[in-house]
Amino acid sequence: MDRQLTSPLLITPVSAPTKLSSKQTFIQLQHFLSSLPSGPSRSQLERLTDSLGVEIGAILPSEVEKREAERFADRARRRAEKRKRRQEEREREEREGMEGMVEGLEEDGFGGADEEMEEGAVDFEGEQEIGDRGDVEYGDVVDEEDEDEPDNEHGGMVVDNDDKDDDDEKEDD
């Protein structure tokens, strides 16, 4: 560890490096841009190419501004198309979901012409319908008498506990 290890890979130059001029770089970038799909990296390389073209005099500065405006408009158009596609996809999914719910209800027997259900009524297997239960009014249900109820202790008479308290207070005086 005291000395530096030698690299197993030796890179040897084949020829002397050549320096590209600005004009050659501009031409190479223009050819390369034609093969790139539209996206952020392409926009960045287009800007680099435009600035290099202005530097060498191949492009006028007004042309660069026009190209930048076109890129901005193209980007806004692509975004709008993408939003529209997403919105259409959401609407299609919602429509399919609603159609599936309606079909599911029809398959389960809901919504058929042979069954009449009142608004808000839900049909479940084994559930009694309102007509099956008969008319029930307050006080009609006779249950076993509950020992905890005060009226059961006094033979059906309701005793007011407040009256008892008043009677107790009179006796204390």
Rank of each mutant, 00 (worst) to 15 (best):
G131T: 12
A73S: 14
R75L: 04
G155E: 06
A76G: 01
F32V: 07
E137L: 08
R92W: 15
V141E: 12
E145F: 06
R95L: 15
D151K: 08
D160P: 04
P40C: 00
E149I: 01
D163L: 09
Q87S: 11
R71D: 02
P40S: 08
S51V: 05
Q4V: 14
R133N: 08
V136S: 05
R3E: 07
K19V: 14
E93Y: 06
S38L: 04
P40R: 00
G109Y: 03
G104Q: 00
M98S: 14
T6I: 14
M1K: 14
A16R: 14
P13F: 03
R79I: 00
Q24L: 06
R83H: 01
E116P: 00
E144Q: 11
R67T: 07
D50H: 01
L105N: 04
E81H: 05
V158F: 10
E103M: 07
H31L: 12
M98P: 03
E99R: 15
S22Q: 08
K164F: 12
F72I: 15
G109C: 04
P40Q: 02
E137H: 10
L9F: 07
R79S: 00
A16W: 10
R42Q: 11
G39R: 02
F110E: 04
K82G: 05
P17D: 05
I130K: 14
S15M: 05
N152S: 10
G156L: 03
R83L: 10
R3F: 15
